[in-house]
């Protein structure tokens, strides 16, 4: 078991004919992901990396039975791409694209909530179930199958943590990058709920950062609902207020979003907080011994 994606995932790539889309399609196929279709309007009938390309998501779904999509289209076209997948009945949409206006995302998530569509991202590395399915850009060579579920607002920081776990011989059930934007799809809480129900997952790693209050909400949720051990990390303790730290959502504003508040919330919920990324693996190893 795992969460969200596995060997039954039939993936559709939106923007498959673009440079990024094609490159990562090849990487995903190489990892063993079942990529069944690509979509680029106007390029229907072509093939990319052996994958048939369609003009619309609806047609791709009808012809191939795709049940998940991943989006590599530029920011100004990405909201439409997300909506097209949701409107075509795809239950899981993963948006890698960075730079979508927050107000566009409000409309998008409102529609997706109504449809019951899961969205991972935007501005995220995607997700991977080691040994089964990779959707997005997380390097396949650093993961290994195992018991630890990871949920993170970051990309390379997640790789760092995965790498530290793998180096210690501790594998992962599923690694989910939920993205660094202020308005996104799945939040920590929804992913924690999935890990709680997943029999393969024994421990959970939560990687947060400054900005917003998603970590505080997650801490409360863990205290009330999660029986599995959780280790947290919060990036940005040295970040000054009022400055955006790369991610659109990583900003301390209006006295909200500080690392110390998030760390205090986790500690109050009985969740150990690692001092640096590599220490997460130490704490997990200790929990498992």
């Amino acid at each position: 078991m795992s969460i969200l994606v596995d060997k039954n995932t039939r993936l559709l790539v939106q923007g498959i004919t673009g440079r990024e889309g094609e490159f990562h399609t090849r990487q995903m196929i190489e990892y063993g992901t079942n990529v069944v279709a690509g979509v680029t309007p106007g390029r229907g009938g072509q093939e990319v990396a052996g994958v048939p390309v369609f003009d619309t998501v609806a047609e791709a779904v009808e012809k191939t039975g795709a049940n998940a999509s991943v989006i590599f289209v530029p920011a100004r076209f990405a909201p439409d791409a997300i909506l097209e997948s949701a409107a075509s009945g795809i239950p899981l949409v993963v948006c890698i694209t960075e730079g979508i206006p927050a107000l566009d995302m409000i409309n998008v998530v409102t529609y997706l909530d109504e449809k019951g569509t899961y969205l991972v991202g935007p501005n995220c590395p995607g997700l991977i179930t080691p040994g089964e399915c990779k959707v997005g850009i997380i390097p396949g060579n650093i993961v290994m199958p195992g018991p630890v579920g990871i949920v993170s607002r970051s990309g390379t920081l997640t790789y760092e943590v995965i790498w530290a776990l793998t180096a210690r011989g501790i594998g992962q059930s599923t690694c989910v990058g939920i993205g660094g934007d202020p308005v996104n799809g799945l939040r920590f809480i929804e992913v924690l709920e999935l890990f709680e129900k997943d029999p393969q997952t024994e421990q959970i790693v939560l990687i947060g950062e400054i900005g917003g209050t998603a970590e505080e909400r997650a801490a409360e949720y863990i205290k009330a609902n999660i029986s599995k051990p959780v280790v947290a990390f919060v990036a940005g303790q040295t970040a000054p207020p009022g400055k955006r730290m790369g991610h659109a959502g990583a900003i301390i504003s209006g006295g909200e979003g500080r690392a110390e508040d998030k760390i205090a919330a986790f500690e109050a919920a009985g969740v150990p907080v690692a001092e640096h990324p590599e220490q997460i693996a130490d704490i997990i190893a200790e929990m498992r011994s």
């Binding site: 993170s152 607002r153 970051s154 990309g155 390379t156 920081l157 997640t158 790789y159 760092e160 660094g180 990687i207 950062e209 400054i210 990390f233 990036a235 940005g236 303790q237 040295t238 970040a239 000054p240 400055k243 955006r244 730290m245 790369g246 991610h247 990583a250 690392a259 001092e275 640096h276 990324p277």
Partner: peptide
């Protein structure tokens, strides 16, 4: 590039915003 000037003495070059913050934090640690 995504860059924010700070007051310290150790220049940091990192790929990825989350990792860049974590790198700053560990320098401080």
């Amino acid at each position: 590039l995504s860059y924010v000037d700070l007051d310290g003495e150790i220049g940091c070059m990192v790929n990825g915003a989350g990792l860049a913050m974590a790198t700053m934090d560990i320098v401080k640690l």
